[in-house]
Design a binder for these strands. Structure first.
Length: 475
RNA sequence: GCGGCCAUAGUUCAAUGGUAGAACAUUGGUUUGUGGUACCAAGUACCAGGGUCCGAUUCCCUGUGGCCGCCCCA
């Protein structure tokens, strides 16, 4: 009695004091912002099935196509990115998370993965390996821009690169892998956009030609494009302004001005794609934002011909990159997908996420002795490969059965005071409601046997289950 | 980096210049060791800081964050 009174008094008095203290502490210390940084977000348990599905599909495909996994640091020296991606690009110019370390190093968070992977390729002498050297990677990348749906400052990419082979058949196979990634994830309506932006030689010639043309039409361009004309004339072709598109329509196209080598390369790529039955669209206006691309560039868009389209991922050939950052000349090609965008699209088209196996057995306990024993019983079941759910913190059998019911288990094992003393366990069939008492010794085998035979019953009764789980509703 | 819209319980949304309600979710209960439904009950919220005002969650400003458009891209 005295104890209870003390408790009540303590309970009443405590919150008021605690609140005051909290307030005082808050004033002295900087309050913690209960939110992540702008453009960053938590990936909550409810979303994990989608992430797990992406992980499984990409890992499986990368293995099937002969890619080895590589993981490189998220932080690298800034000049790696400046040099490879290009000083003038938006990614480097405005979106790079760069800072100086305590030791004075100029570093940056990676805005994409290929630069770091190319660095690792050179550093570890992978050029001596049998070509092509195919590398797969997955992780977060960082770009400091204005967040929107499907566009974050911290986001995840799955990245495929292939070093050391210049044959256009590699280009075709890479595009095939890219298409299979999204298709295997249940995104059926996609567009493959391809283009060739040539090699440094013919690209320069083409650029001059384009600038000439644009200058002749300069009065018809928007303000931004007049600026772009000098900085990166290729981007003018991509401008969404009406008047610029009109100019772009009759602009010279890079595919018409490729050198012989690039032209043949592109031509045979298209032949390979035809052979693969991969429907593609040649998009002469497809220009990617990284300077290191040569020849083939491509993107995978979601959606069909009309309607909203967004780029799920893209890539291209980068024959000059490895040499650019200090290795021997090495042809290469790669692509990356944005995982958040893929998941967004999976949800849009109601693609199936990964379904984790769910426990079919619930273990309920009642009374002190049973509670103690149930802890061991749980691990015995787990060791025998039986997935078990429990709610040991709950007291009443009723509330435990409620949880069991909600989880949709096939059977509940009930261990009460009486059973604990008798060394028995009650097995309750959650579909029929029937119960039987089994000896603790034989329990594991009995449960195993029942799970096997009960499967039939379960399928039989499947439509009868009162409440579909949340996951089922989602799919 | 530029422009616009928005910000209330765990979630989706209300109302209001006098400190806030619902639904769903969660937890407990409807007597003793048994689930669903129903019923009852409980807890939890005005993004932060300034200003106007007797008084602000409400009006204004700034910050922070989300979303949309541009830019760019994944």
């Amino acid at each position: 009695m005295a104890k209870i009174i003390k408790k009540v008094v303590a309970k009443k008095a405590a919150p008021a004091k605690a609140k005051k203290q909290v307030k005082e502490v808050k004033k002295e210390l900087e309050p913690i912002a209960l939110q992540p940084l702008r453009g960053m977000k938590d990936i909550l348990p409810e979303d994990q099935p989608y992430w797990e599905q992406v992980r499984r599909v990409t890992e499986r495909l990368s293995r099937d196509y002969g890619f080895s996994r590589i993981d490189t640091p998220i932080v690298e020296f800034s000049n790696l990115f400046n040099r490879s991606i290009g000083e003038g690009t938006d990614i480097v110019e405005k979106e790079l998370y760069s800072f100086v370390t305590k030791g004075g190093d100029k570093v940056a968070l990676r805005p994409e993965m290929t630069a770091g992977i190319a660095r690792a390729y050179i550093q570890h002498g992978m050029n001596v390996l049998s070509k092509p050297v195919k590398l797969f990677s997955a992780g977060t990348v960082y770009r400091y821009d204005r967040p929107q749906e499907g566009r974050y400052r911290e986001f995840s990419q799955v990245n495929f690169d292939s070093f050391g082979e210049q044959d256009p058949i590699l280009d075709a196979q890479m595009i095939q892998v890219a298409a299979r990634v999204v298709q295997n994830l249940g995104i059926k309506a996609i567009q493959i956009q391809v283009n060739s932006i040539g090699c440094p030689v013919c690209r320069k010639q083409y650029k001059d030609l384009l600038v000439n043309y644009l200058e002749s039409k300069a009065t018809k361009l928007c303000i931004d494009c007049k600026r772009r004309m000098e900085v990166s004339p290729l981007r003018v072709l991509d401008c969404k302004e009406d008047k610029c598109s009109q100019v772009a329509v009759s602009a010279p196209q890079s595919v018409d001005h490729l050198c012989e080598e690039c032209r043949v390369h592109f031509k045979s790529l298209l032949e390979y794609l035809d052979e693969l039955d991969l429907p593609y669209t040649i998009n002469p206006r497809l220009v990617r934002g990284l300077d290191y691309y040569t020849k083939t560039v491509f993107e995978i868009w979601s959606g069909s011909e009309e309607g909203r389209k967004s780029s799920l991922g893209g890539g291209g050939r980068y024959d000059g990159l490895v040499k650019m950052i200090g290795g021997e000349a090495t042809p290469a090609i790669g692509f990356a997908f944005g995982v958040e965008r893929i998941i967004l699209e999976m949800k849009r088209v109601q693609a199936k996420p990964y379904r984790a196996p769910k426990p079919k057995v619930f273990l309920a306990q009642l009374g002190d002795l049973a509670k103690k024993k149930s802890l061991r019983l749980f691990s015995e079941l787990e060791k025998n490969g039986i997935l078990v759910a429990e709610s040991f913190g709950r007291g009443s059998l009723k509330s435990q059965l409620r949880v069991a019911n909600r989880l949709g288990v096939e059977m509940t094992l009930i261990l009460g005071q009486k059973e604990a003393l008798d060394k028995t366990v009650i097995i309750k069939n959650m579909i029929s409601g029937e119960q039987e008492t089994a000896s603790a010794e034989k329990l594991i085998d009995l449960v195993k046997k029942k799970l096997k035979t009960d499967n039939v019953v379960v399928y039989h009764d499947h439509n009868h289950v009162a409440e579909p789980s949340q996951e089922q509703e989602q799919t």
